[in-house]
């Protein structure tokens, strides 16, 4: 299902259809994540991937043409590069422990201590994110903040016409 969505996504030249398809892809991804019991991530995927980013892409589409230009170059070099990367990743994934294997190293290292739950929060994901890995989450929040500040710096219209004249050079 998702592979089909991606294939159509690649073939389509109408950007509006591409945006709608990527929204569908995000919803499929969210259902997949629910099936994997990662409800927190699924929620984020549905809200960000299918909701907000679809709207943002539509807003961006409003600014440009709605048909994708024909590619100028032959796709063989990028295609072979991505196929090689995919092959490498699949080869690496074959070396991983089995899915949900309780003896895997990731379940042996710090996970037991997390699950002892000394902070007494029933949702372990929240406990790990906010308490055990508080520094990481602080960093992530700062990244989000920086992204917002960057967007403001890039897209805000200048309020001082004098500066604009100076930039353009009379």
């Amino acid at each position: 299902m998702m592979a089909l969505a991606v294939l159509v996504l690649v073939r389509t030249r109408n950007l509006f259809a591409v945006i709608v398809l990527s929204g569908i892809y995000s919803f499929l991804m969210a259902t997949l994540l629910v099936a994997l019991d990662a409800v927190d991530v699924a929620m984020t995927e549905a809200a960000v991937g299918a909701g907000v980013s679809t709207v943002l892409l539509l807003g961006a589409l409003h600014l440009c043409k709605s048909e994708e230009a024909k590619p100028v170059h032959r796709p063989w070099l990028p295609l072979s590069l991505s196929l090689a990367t995919a092959g490498l990743l699949i080869y690496g994934a074959l070396g991983l422990p089995d899915f949900a294997d309780p003896a895997a190293p990731i379940h042996r290292h710090v996970a037991p201590r997390y699950l002892q739950n000394e902070v007494d929060v029933p949702n372990v994901v929240t406990a790990v994110l906010a308490s055990f890995r508080g520094y990481d989450t602080l960093g992530e929040t700062t990244v989000v903040f920086t992204a917002g500040a960057g967007i403001i710096a890039l897209l805000r219209r200048r309020r001082h016409p004098r500066n604009e004249d100076g930039d353009h050079g009379k």
Binding site: L63, A127, A130, L138, T141, V144, A147, G148
Partner: peptide, 23 residues
């Protein structure tokens, strides 16, 4: 955890809205 989550929520919704307003 309560306050930390509140901080995350405030920043994230602010950034999302700001980007949307901008575009």
């Amino acid at each position: 955890i309560f306050w930390v989550e509140a901080g995350v929520a405030v920043t994230v919704s602010g950034v999302m809205l700001k980007i949307f307003y901008m575009f």
